[in-house]
């Protein structure tokens, strides 16, 4: 699989202060596919996207995107590499002082010297593909959560990137916007020939669009495979996550001393 990998993480270790987030993990994202990275909240799935985008640097290991080792790039090299990737933030992160139209036009105006009527037609096409052409003149504060995420999606495909990273695209969406987003992620990936990484903890939604899935827990990758393979996986961690069980290898309790001891201390 690593022959046609677009993103490849090799033996990467990363920690924040004392706390180790990833310990020697490796994964590979094949070109043209939708790959889901799933796992419980708070294990640093978003951190993985920031590492791939070069906003954070790992302690050890390589992160190779389209043949370039991201942590080793200079500041300018990194900015060049980022022109090929884009990221959809959980909040959408639209610029609040610009209209939806100007938000989508922003990366085009920043990076290409194009006459305004071409910019206009490009932006309208992108907005049309997410169904928001009619909302071009609204301000971000006037959009609903789902619309804001779609507008942000239009902005992140404005320059036709090769790689698009979705940070929890389904979190906090109503069923209709969720369905719209699922369809959009899949169809944009296939129509534009993108490579997509979807970070999510919504098991069913992520499985429904992913070609390949990585499951992370306890600083490691605990399972990977196609959705069909994972459904049959009998490792307890994968099973707990896929079935949504409260307790198991990922404990329900935050690490602590046994409750009997603590209560005994309180009563003493």
């Amino acid at each position: 699989m690593s022959d046609n990998a677009y993103v490849e993480v090799k033996n990467m270790t990363f920690s924040r202060g004392e706390r180790v987030i990833y310990e020697d993990i490796s994964l590979s994202i094949p070109k043209g596919k939708v790959v889901a990275v799933m796992g419980p909240s708070g294990i640093g799935k978003t951190t993985l996207l920031r590492l791939i985008a070069g906003q954070l640097k790992p302690e050890k290991g390589q992160i190779i995107v389209d043949g370039e080792n991201i942590p080793a790039l200079s500041r300018n090299g990194l900015y060049e590499a980022r022109k090929k990737m884009s990221m959809l933030f959980q909040s959408g992160a639209l610029f609040s002082e610009m209209s939806v139209f100007d938000n989508v036009a922003f990366p085009i105006r920043e990076h290409c010297k194009l006459p305004e009527d071409i910019v206009r037609s490009m932006v309208l096409m992108k907005l049309n593909s997410v169904g928001l052409r009619g909302a071009a003149n609204l301000m971000p504060s006037e959009l609903s959560g789902g619309m804001a995420r779609r507008a942000a999606l239009a902005r992140s495909i404005a320059l036709d990137p090769d790689l698009i990273m979705y940070d929890e695209p389904f979190a906090g969406q109503d069923p209709i916007s969720m369905g719209v987003l699922i369809r959009l992620i899949r169809s944009l990936n296939d129509a534009l020939g993108l490579t997509s990484i979807v970070v999510s903890h919504d098991v069913n939604e992520a499985l429904s669009i992913a070609d390949y899935v990585y499951i992370m827990a306890n600083k490691k990758i605990v399972g990977h495979g196609t959705p069909a393979q994972l459904a049959k996986d009998d490792s307890p961690l994968v099973h707990q996550f896929m079935a949504g069980e409260a307790d198991g290898p990922v404990p329900f309790h935050f690490p602590s001393q046994p409750i009997e001891e603590e209560l005994a201390e309180v009563l003493k």
């Binding site: 980022r82 990221m87 933030f89 909040s91 990366p107 920043e110 902005r155």
Partner: peptide
């Protein structure tokens, strides 16, 4: 806080 600076960085705008 609203990740606007981060998203700008990711659009390769400093």
């Amino acid at each position: 806080a609203t990740e606007q600076l981060s998203s700008m960085e990711l659009m390769a705008v400093d």
